[in-house]
Computed example of a mutant assay.
Amino acid sequence: MAGKIDAKLKELGIDLKEPAAPVANYVGYVISGNLVFVSGQVTLEDGQLKYLGKVGADLSVEDGQKAARLCAINIVAQLKAACGGDLDRVKRIVRLGGFVNSTPDFTQQPEVVNGASDLMVEVFGDAGRHCRAAVSAGALPRNVAVEVDCIAEIG
């Protein structure tokens, strides 16, 4: 039987894929005690990178929000793997770190990273409310627009 979070994902029309395998010498997540540290997730969908370029030049704030949302979906996929398939084990999203590939004069990083923050609250409810950082990056891997990492508490 699907759990509460799986049912919420279905209601939102989100179909989680297998989490992306690391492309270098790191792992997708590490569990330490009751915390899961999820490596930075990028805008990978169906094996293809989406939302490439700089927000504020190549992409709009709205595109950046969609990119951040996609990163958050990829975080949820990593959390599902970390929880042995049971997302109901996620007790709290503790922190998100959002990195926005943006022009030097762009200052709306918080609005962009809201795409990830909003997704976490949509999926996990109050347990999805978190602290976070939303910062500019001069460049991100493979020219993706956004990268987001996460710390979550599990039970």
Results as ranks from 00 to 15, higher is better:
Met1Arg: 04
Ala2Trp: 00
Ala2Arg: 02
Ile5Lys: 01
Lys10Pro: 00
Lys10Gln: 09
Leu12His: 05
Gly13His: 02
Ile14Thr: 07
Asp15Trp: 03
Leu16Thr: 12
Lys17Ala: 12
Glu18Gln: 15
Ala20Ile: 00
Ala21Glu: 12
Pro22Met: 10
Asn25Arg: 12
Tyr26Lys: 04
Val27Ile: 09
Gly28Val: 08
Tyr29Ile: 08
Val30Cys: 02
Gly33Ala: 05
Gly33Asn: 05
Asn34His: 11
Leu35Tyr: 15
Val36Tyr: 02
Gly40His: 09
Val42Gln: 10
Leu44Asn: 14
Leu44Ile: 15
Leu44Arg: 03
Glu45Leu: 15
Asp46Met: 00
Asp46Leu: 03
Tyr51Trp: 13
Tyr51Glu: 11
Gly53Phe: 05
Val55Tyr: 05
Leu59Met: 10
Ser60Asn: 09
Ser60Ile: 03
Asp63Lys: 05
Gln65Ala: 04
Ala67Met: 06
Ala68Met: 06
Leu70Lys: 04
Leu70Thr: 05
Ala72Ile: 04
Val76Thr: 15
Val76Glu: 08
Gln78Ile: 01
Leu79Thr: 02
Ala81Cys: 07
Ala81Asp: 15
Ala82Ser: 13
Gly84Gln: 10
Gly84Thr: 07
Gly84Ser: 11
Asp88Glu: 13
Val90Gln: 06
Val94Gly: 02
Leu96Glu: 01
Leu96Trp: 02
Leu96Gln: 01
Gly97Arg: 10
Gly97His: 13
Gly98Glu: 03
Gly98Met: 06
Gly98Asp: 02
Phe99Lys: 05
Thr103Trp: 09
Thr103Asp: 10
Pro104Leu: 08
Asp105Glu: 15
Thr107Val: 13
Gln109Gly: 02
Gln109Phe: 04
Pro110Gln: 14
Pro110Arg: 06
Glu111Met: 03
Val113Ser: 03
Val113Met: 13
Val113Lys: 03
Asn114His: 11
Asp118Ser: 12
Val121Lys: 10
Val121Cys: 11
Gly128Pro: 04
His130Pro: 01
His130Ile: 00
Cys131Trp: 00
Ala133Gln: 07
Ala134Ile: 01
Ser136Glu: 03
Ser136Met: 06
Ala137Val: 09
Ala139Arg: 10
Ala139Thr: 14
Leu140Gly: 10
Asn143Ser: 14
Asn143Lys: 13
Asn143Trp: 12
Glu153Gln: 14
